[in-house]
Simulated scan of single mutants.
Amino acid sequence: MQPHGKLPEPLCGKIFSVRTGRHHGLSDSRTRSKDLVVPFRGVRAHGMPKSLLERGRSLLAVMEPHQVFSHETAAELWGMPLPKAGEVMHVMAIGVRGRMRRPGVKGWERARTETSSSGACATCLS
Rank of each mutant, 00 (worst) to 15 (best):
L59Q: 07
P81Q: 10
S29Y: 02
S58E: 12
H66C: 14
S58Q: 09
G42V: 02
H71T: 01
E87A: 10
R30V: 09
G86Q: 15
G56W: 15
F40I: 08
S33R: 14
M48I: 04
K84C: 04
W78V: 01
V38A: 06
K14C: 09
D28W: 05
S33N: 10
K50H: 05
L60G: 02
E87V: 14
G56Y: 15
A45I: 11
C12L: 15
G86V: 13
H71R: 06
S58I: 07
S29Q: 13
K84I: 12
G79A: 09
P49S: 10
A61Q: 13
S33W: 10
E64D: 13
L36K: 03
V37H: 00
P10N: 07
R22S: 07
A75F: 03
M48A: 06
V43K: 04
M80N: 05
T31Q: 10
H90P: 01
A61E: 14
H66V: 14
K84V: 13
F40L: 11
W78E: 13
E72Q: 14
F69K: 11
E72T: 12
R41G: 03
S29W: 02
V38Y: 00
T73Y: 10
H90A: 06
L36D: 05
V62I: 13
R55A: 09
L77P: 01
P81I: 02
H71E: 08
G79I: 04
S58N: 09
S33D: 12
L77R: 05
S17E: 05
M89I: 13
G25A: 03
L26M: 14
P49I: 12
S70T: 07
A75Y: 00
E87H: 04
L59I: 11
D28G: 08
H71I: 03
R32H: 12
V62K: 01
G86E: 12
M89C: 07
M89W: 02
F40R: 07
S70M: 09
L60R: 15
H24A: 03
R19T: 12
E87Y: 04
K50M: 10
A75H: 00
L82G: 00
E72F: 08
S70P: 01
M89V: 08
H24K: 01
L26Y: 02
L36P: 04
G42K: 02
S29T: 13
R55E: 08
M80K: 09
V88I: 15
S17M: 08
T73Q: 10
L82Q: 05
S58K: 08
G79V: 01
K50A: 10
G47A: 15
A45P: 06
M63A: 08
P49Q: 11
R22I: 10
H90G: 01
T73P: 09
A61C: 15
H23A: 13
L52F: 04
F69D: 06
R41V: 07
G56S: 15
H46Y: 11
M89R: 03
K84G: 03
T31W: 00
D35C: 11
R22W: 04
Q67V: 13
G56T: 15
D35I: 08
V68Q: 14
L77A: 03
L52N: 02
G42R: 03
S58M: 07
L82D: 00
P10D: 09
P65G: 13
G21R: 01
E87K: 12
T73H: 10
T20D: 11
H71C: 06
R19S: 12
A75T: 00
A75Q: 02
R41Y: 06
G47M: 15
